[in-house]
Write a protein that binds this DNA or RNA. Sequence first.
DNA 1: CGTCTATTTGAATGTACTCAAAAGCGGTGG
DNA 2: CCACCGCTTTTGAGTACATTCAAATAGACG
Lengths: 195, 195
Amino acid sequence: MPFEILHANIQKHIHLTNDDKARLFTVLKPKSIKRKNFILHENQVSTHATFVLKGCLKAYTVNDNGFEHIIQFAPEDWWVTDMYSFISQKPGNIIIEAIENSEVVQLSRADQLRLFDDIPAFERYFRIITEKSLVSYRTRLMDNMSLTATERYAGFCEQYPTLITKLPQKLIASYIGVTPEFLSKMRARQRNKSI
Amino acid sequence: MPFEILHANIQKHIHLTNDDKARLFTVLKPKSIKRKNFILHENQVSTHATFVLKGCLKAYTVNDNGFEHIIQFAPEDWWVTDMYSFISQKPGNIIIEAIENSEVVQLSRADQLRLFDDIPAFERYFRIITEKSLVSYRTRLMDNMSLTATERYAGFCEQYPTLITKLPQKLIASYIGVTPEFLSKMRARQRNKSI
DNA sequence: CGTCTATTTGAATGTACTCAAAAGCGGTGG
DNA sequence: CCACCGCTTTTGAGTACATTCAAATAGACG
């Protein structure tokens, strides 16, 4: 079963019959994507949502000065898409790129909407994960507004211990919203304190 | 029809039969709430989602130093809740308070889930507004990470022209993530430039 | 092994905050 | 209707957190 990870993920939230599962699998498109390759470019319409089976992607924007701001890391067992573009089917400003060689499956918005019509359980599944995702964006927004860079970094280390070990610092800096130089200095301060 | 605003809002996204509408109206609880009164306290479970018929509410957190950070304004025709607490039914850290005398209707999570089971169109409605809400949190997060305070203020003025006129500056400062003093200074700078 | 990218370190700078005090404004009661 | 009180807004001086720019070092990949 190639998509077993996704199936397990779905079953955590709803119950799928074998028919439902079969129906889903007919519309999923598997894709291999090499490190530094793109699933979505800027100004492109996000026709598909992407579920990561293996590897890791990043979703980010690029501002006027050419700086990347990482919206989301998508390791194994995560969905990633430009939700704005995906629901409006208009061009978005988000870039999705593999940071490791990865295996993903993709679901088009059109297929997703057909699934919603035919199998209410799917609409429930996406309703639930969208609710959770909303909470995590909201939490991150409030953290950005009320915490210092040091506190945000500590929070990231706590929340994503596995990502810390495998991601370059530069990307973590971009996610928590500081320059790579400043993250390096924060880490130096921490080392001096703890010694 | 007391809840006509809500009905109109729902119809923008899905089609409701008269039966569906009647069913919804039996579980909605109307409530009047005076300025400076609360519909949700910190550490309380958010049992209900609230739709504003008239007036305006604010949802915010309070940090360790006693500073408010406004998550959301909820004027007429908006839903507001502590999504984390609402979906988990655990105590949250968000406060919801009326900033004008307001009229609202409330829907309990339990009633909402029953509606989802019985009438898939309701699940669709909330799935859609949750998707949109997620996009707006994501946009705001990225704005906070990549824009200066001046740019965020300009963006707020553009996006919510009606709120600008009726909200005290203090609250706008809290929403865009600056101190009231600094917002005042930004506005002074703007005035000097444009003269 | 060499090249390219990531990380570290330092000095100078800037954006936004803190604290304090004055001025403005709005609502309420006499 | 006016006067007072409390809250919001303004202004200023000093400060801090984080950035920018530059250069050196370390590390990773082909």
